[in-house]
């Protein structure tokens, strides 16, 4: 069941990491351009802008936590190299989400939520209970599933349809993470259609 993980990390580790670091910057820039660079996002938004900013800040809080959760997993020494590479890749996605959300919040005149200390996330996520690779993957999968449902659940609350679409796109990335993590743990696909969000 690690075949997908191995496929994703088939590039030699050093080259992969270097490529990853370069790709991260590119991804962030592209994401920012796509999310925050759309001037129409900031235009035509009226009294509900602050509400949308509030929703984006909750999303930013999720991304901060996800980045730190993957950091805890990567630093735990519990992950095999191939799995570690994928975890770092997923963390890069969350960093791209964070950068895009921060830029969008600022463009809308809001103040981005601050990241907490790694130790605070470790305590809140009970990182001291992680004993093996399966524990780390299970934690990551639970957070990704929660994020999918959180993003889908706030879509109706956005005043801006553009931002609602952003939430859907974020959910799509988290779904990709969740399915791959589940696959790596040998878990089955979701039982049926419409299993997310409701």
């Amino acid at each position: 069941m690690t075949s997908l993980i191995q496929t994703l990390s088939a590039t030699p580790p050093t080259a992969s990491r270097r490529a990853f670091m370069g790709r991260t910057g590119t991804l962030s820039a592209v994401a920012v351009a796509m999310l925050a660079g759309k001037d129409t996002l900031a235009q035509g938004m009226g009294a509900d802008t602050s509400k949308d900013v509030g929703i984006l800040n909750v999303a930013l809080g999720l991304e901060h936590e996800a980045i730190n959760a993957y950091q805890l997993g990567a630093g735990s020494g519990l992950l095999q190299k191939a799995v570690l590479d994928v975890a770092v890749r997923f963390q890069a996605d969350h960093k791209a989400h964070r950068d895009a959300l921060v830029a969008t919040i600022q463009k809308l005149g809001g103040t981005p939520a601050m990241e907490k200390k790694l130790d605070d996330y470790a305590k809140a996520l009970n990182a001291d209970t992680l004993r093996n690779q399966g524990d780390v993957l299970d934690l990551a999968a639970r957070l990704e599933l929660g994020a999918i449902n959180a993003y889908l659940g706030v879509i109706p609350a956005f005043a801006s349809k553009d931002l609602a679409k952003v939430a859907a796109r974020l959910a799509a990335d988290e779904t990709m993470h969740y399915i791959l993590l589940n696959n790596a743990m040998g878990r089955p696909l979701p039982a049926g259609a419409l299993s997310f969000g409701a």
Binding site: V58, L62, A124, A150
Partner: peptide, 16 residues
């Protein structure tokens, strides 16, 4: 609760 609320909430820890 675990699948829908768990992104932000835990039972005993303040998170998002």
């Amino acid at each position: 609760f675990e699948s829908r609320c768990g992104a932000c909430h835990s039972l005993d820890a303040n998170r998002v």
